[in-house]
């Protein structure tokens, strides 16, 4: 059969690389074919999600930040300094977390979606016109965020003036200084040329952009055991590949940017410099619990527990590095590319 798979990015971007791997495995090991639809060709994220729910397409990438309007608990991925900062811990966490693979998976099923996989797409960075070392540096900075309450709250707490703007207008608005900042994972900053109209790239470690892969539930349940295994193996292969591919991707994007724009200043905030941002993030977590209630709190607690376990596994017992709170979500951007 032909399986249609819609992603939120272009073919060369992270989701495209994952989907291509998935496609290659499926086509090499069965008679099925996979057609990949890059971002925008079947609509925005909300549209492709719905298409998968209705069974018009079989697979979809849906970034949890967007899916927050469907499954509020998923907004946990937008929380600053919540996901592990160490990529190895993060990779282990996605793979082993029972909160994700059981609790959240059940929420997806209520929406006619079978959660296949969840993978990181790289650390979210801020690109700005002026240097950012502390929350004070964001005072008065009009910072473009996707209009979703938790991101707005995050940048409010960080001291910026969150400014909603359609994605198509962001480049022009930065160029004309209507806004002075935006956030996105590194590869996306590179591919959307955001660095051309900003001068500072800051690694604050507040989030890692995450995406989910899901299948239409009826379609998945209707597959033979053999095909189910095929899908799972293909996903596992693609996952391992993408985790590997991720390593150094941020650096690669950074190199490309430096080559295209030598004047760019890249700052990686030290643990100490991140502290005030971490403090600010606490309020955002409160807001999340406010928005999502008991169930959201359970997810957040589950995350913390699972992350501790992953940390112990990967870093070996003494999870004392203190670097665990990193970042998770800039759905916004990529999502917004579909806007």
């Amino acid at each position: 059969d032909e399986w249609k798979y819609a992603i939120e990015e272009a073919l060369e971007e992270v989701q495209g690389v994952y989907a291509t791997k998935f496609k290659e495995y499926v086509e090499a090991n069965s008679d099925h074919t996979v057609s990949i639809y890059p971002f925008g060709t079947l609509g925005e994220s909300a549209d492709t999600t719905e298409l998968a729910q209705m069974g018009a397409i079989q697979f979809v990438d849906l970034s949890p930040g967007f899916t927050g309007s469907l499954i509020p608990e998923l907004q946990v991925f937008l929380l600053p300094y919540t996901l592990p900062e160490n990529p190895d811990v993060l990779a282990d966490f996605y793979k082993t977390s029972s909160t994700i693979n059981e609790k959240l998976a059940a929420l997806y099923e209520q929406q006619q979606l079978k959660l296949i996989d969840m993978f990181p797409e790289g650390e979210v960075v801020m690109t700005t016109k002026e240097e950012v070392k502390a929350p004070e540096d964001l005072n008065g900075v009009k910072f473009r965020v996707m209009t979703t309450p938790l991101l707005v709250e995050t940048y409010n707490q960080f001291g910026a003036t969150p400014t909603p703007l359609p994605w198509g207008e962001v480049f022009g608005a930065l160029q004309l200084n209507m806004i002075q900042g935006q956030e996105n994972p590194m590869f996306f900053v590179e591919s959307t040329k955001m660095y051309e109209v900003t001068d500072y790239i800051t690694f604050t470690g507040h989030n890692t952009f995450t995406t989910a892969v899901a299948a239409n539930l009826n379609f998945y349940q209707g597959l033979s055991d053999e095909d189910k295994k095929l899908v799972q193996t293909a996903a596992d292969q693609a996952y391992d590949y993408i985790i590997d591919y991720q390593k150094g991707l941020t650096e690669k994007s950074l190199e490309k940017i430096k080559e295209a724009k030598p004047s760019i200043t890249v700052t990686r905030l030290s643990d100490e410099e991140r502290e005030p941002f971490r403090q600010a993030a606490e309020k955002v977590r409160q807001k999340y619990v406010e928005l999502t209630g008991e169930s959201g709190k359970e997810v957040l607690d589950g995350f913390e527990k699972d992350i501790e376990a992953s940390k112990a596994r990967v870093e070996g017992g003494g999870a004392s590095e203190g670097s665990s709170d990193s970042a998770a979500a800039s759905e916004e951007t990529k999502a917004s590319s579909a806007n």
Partner: peptide, 19 residues
């Protein structure tokens, strides 16, 4: 003539400098 949405979309899809 800038700003042009068509050019922004092309730039993003093709990986070309929008400026």
């Amino acid at each position: 003539i800038p700003p042009s949405i068509a050019m922004i979309i092309y730039g993003v899809v093709s990986g070309t400098s929008i400026s």
